[in-house]
Design a protein around this nucleic acid. Sequence first.
DNA 1: AATCACACGTGACTC
DNA 2: TGAGTCACGTGTGAT
Lengths: 238, 238
Amino acid sequence: MYSGNPNSLNLKSDCEGLAGNWGSEAMSVGQSLVLDSEKGLVKTLGETGKKRCFSEAKTVAALKSHSEAERRRRERINAHLATLRGLVPGEEKMDKATLLAEVINQVKQLKKTTKQASEDLHIPTDSDEVKVELLDEDAEGGSYSFRAYICCHYRPDLLSDTRLCLNVLPVALANIEISTLEGRVKIMFLLTARRDKMNDSTEAQELIASSIHEALSCVVDKASASEELSQVMLPSKR
Amino acid sequence: MYSGNPNSLNLKSDCEGLAGNWGSEAMSVGQSLVLDSEKGLVKTLGETGKKRCFSEAKTVAALKSHSEAERRRRERINAHLATLRGLVPGEEKMDKATLLAEVINQVKQLKKTTKQASEDLHIPTDSDEVKVELLDEDAEGGSYSFRAYICCHYRPDLLSDTRLCLNVLPVALANIEISTLEGRVKIMFLLTARRDKMNDSTEAQELIASSIHEALSCVVDKASASEELSQVMLPSKR
DNA sequence: AATCACACGTGACTC
DNA sequence: TGAGTCACGTGTGAT
């Protein structure tokens, strides 16, 4: 806890009012500022010590309200900082700068995650889509992964057609997610490929990605009007 | 741009060193601090003006390095603040406090969204689950929604059983999402109910929610070893 | 002893 | 002009 005395003021108590800009080269006369530790104000005026300082009280009041305003501002900022401390995973004790850096990472990570999740499975769109991307997030182990999805009208042999096409590629199906809405279907595939000396290059990975894209496009382009699944799961209005 | 003179120093140039804590009630002698506007230092010592100030240069250097360190700290913090300004949606010009408040909202919102999305469809878990919740987010129109999901082993008649159960309830199936992994399946339902004088009460909504839960639990509890879908989509290792 | 991090009061600037 | 924001230098406790 800070132990300073918040009621002590550093006062500019000369009679020049607020016009004096000490600290800059404009002040050439022997002005001096006196800091009073207690209740009385000690004045050391440069030359005219006898002049009536009528605006002294005004200056004191202005300075006081100023410092109080600044104090409130700091309190507001620190309150927000404290709230952020509670929102980031780390410990309670954290540098202000480190905390902000942590918040930045958190926001970036969350944004990436939500963006990913929103296109992950969402509802199917009205237009046919095929997308394939290399997942770089877990570039550790002996394999790498692709995330792909297609969006098209549902037809009964869509799934088996898709499997057929993917079987000819050197990838394994790790996970699949299906979402349907009003006769349309969106299927997300998580595909993994073993990393070895033959394919551990950017070119090889991009080749596989484009192969996946081509295979899936092939499936999507085979249009069909069948809506068997949607008939089962999404009957007409009751 | 700040136009103050960064080279002006407020120096405590009496020979008491750094021990004096002016501003607190501990200082009772007539000490005073003098601010020098230019290069020379003006000393107004309380009582011993003749004492040699041998450590003056040291003090100046220490103070200088101190202020420089503080300056670096401020720059670090402000750099992070600037980064955050680029991450929040609002305009570039923003109060420091307002910016932090905005960041807090952003983080909270993103956290809620990702939490929702992660339990939305994710991969199926190893244990059977049934969950139903009332969606309060869009409490506007003439209807309200439930989000429900089940997680269990897949069996061929799981979907039709589920539809059968839900059909007896006064809800419409707005969307369904299915994800499968290794023979297990997770199905998410978005269910809507018309809002009318009969059910526009918390009790009625909770009654519907518990009815949905019971119906889905009934389906999940009907265990089966069949894995037809996973045989189609997730063959054994190639 | 030297460094770090924080809170404070203050001058400049803006509305 | 008065209220608010910012950067700065400084006092102070902790490490």
